[in-house]
Write a protein that binds this DNA or RNA. Structure first.
Lengths: 228, 228
DNA sequence: TTAAGATTCAAACGAACGTATGAATTGTTT
DNA sequence: AAACAATTCATACGTTCGTTTGAATCTTAA
């Protein structure tokens, strides 16, 4: 069976690349590491994907395609059910970030490995990676932005955009930095095993995000660094 | 004057490294790029710093030393003034994140360049970089964590730790990703010039962070993705 | 069974990497 | 001015990088 072999090789490369890019970053990962971990020949990456950059693109495309179409159809469903009335902010936030966090427990969608790769990549403004993310994300972000505008008609649009931005940051960091911060500090987050921690991350994060989204609007006059 | 020359060379290297590490990351930046931008000889980095890794360490140490001692003394001052009573959460958040954001407008402390480097580095779990950050950050994080515990005696400590974590993420992303997200989407955040945007970032972020910090506690039972 | 196509393989390519060296230059001290 | 130390410089070292190549192997189909 030729197809099985091809798929195996391609997917083994994608899996290895996903994991290694997550741990060491794009520039910190070599083709030899990838092909070695995937147990394929060095030339296989260039044969199947063309180049290292194309491999990175495919690593993202494989996961983001599903994630974002899921987000879109979830939003469509919510809006269909609401019959023209604005959605609740919590519904929107839940749909966007809940779908994302749901990947953590689903190894077939990339699991924590892909989530952490995505989290760290959002702060790496490498030119071609930004292009890939922009390509995959533009439509989804626009749809959710508009939904939030309708859900919060009294909040200035600029403020909503910023707070969406902050929510993305808190989330991406909550995922990507989970281990990093635990090492940076020696915080003992009580005795939660890792599945417990994961189960509880979503409600914890959601409370935080909604609290931030619905916070009182800032006052811009006479603001100083020391808060006086 | 020999000293002036030494300092010039060292600082030019540090400045160039800071900027290039911010743009391209550690692995994506070569010594030849750094020495070329700094207009010094290729061997100067190894002469003055010993290695590329040591240079990276020094780039952080140069800025984090001041930042964190500032944070500590600010907290000391606040606690001295409060005469044993717990601080207000907003004071603590202001002291920690306000000091950080204050760097943005202060070129002599690194400005936006260093802030964005710091932001993107927190999601890069490279071994030796983590060690540097841990070294510089451990004391400050512990002090502020304890202050938050006292300020919010009714909130479980694990919850506070998580929310501090989320706040760090929102902030780091707000800084590091400012341009990235503006490119990912084509959001027009009205007609604010960049200094206006910077002036308003702090109050905007602070409102969001405090809203998240003081949000209702999450309910862990029967939580589903769609929030029903 | 055999020809054609798809995939894997070992080996090599030039380029760029971080680092080291020893001579040349500059600055300081006597 | 001479001796000494500190710094800069051009150059080269050995490695590793991403990519390419052409032969070998495997799969599919006539």
């Amino acid at each position: 069976m030729a197809e099985a072999r091809i798929v195996d090789t391609r997917e083994r490369i994608l899996d290895a690349g996903e994991r290694l890019f997550m741990v060491h970053g794009y520039d910190g990962t070599s083709m030899r590491q990838i092909t070695s971990e995937a147990a394929v020949n060095l030339a296989a990456v260039n044969y199947h994907f063309g180049s290292k950059e194309s491999l990175m693109q495919e690593v993202f495309r494989r996961r983001l395609g599903w994630l974002n179409s899921e987000r879109i159809s979830l939003l469509n469903k919510l809006e269909a059910e609401s019959e023209g009335k604005p959605l609740k902010p919590s519904q929107i936030v839940d749909a966007f970030f809940g779908t994302l966090l749901g990947i953590a427990a689903d190894e077939s969608r990339g699991g924590m490995t892909f989530l952490r790769l995505l989290g760290r990549t959002l702060t790496e403004p490498s030119e071609f990676i930004r292009a890939v993310l922009m390509d995959e994300y533009a439509e989804v972000l626009e749809r959710y932005k508009q939904a939030l505008f309708r859900a919060l008609p009294d909040v200035p649009k600029a403020e909503i955009v910023w707070r969406f931005h902050f929510m993305l940051g808190a989330t991406s960091y909550a995922i990507a930095g989970t281990d990093a911060l635990r090492v940076i500090t020696d915080w003992q987050i009580e005795a939660e095993d890792s599945t417990d921690r994961l189960d509880r991350l979503l409600p914890r994060l959601m409370s935080f995000l909604l609290g931030g989204l619905r916070a009182p609007l800032p006052q811009f006059e006479s603001v100083t660094v020391d808060g006086k």
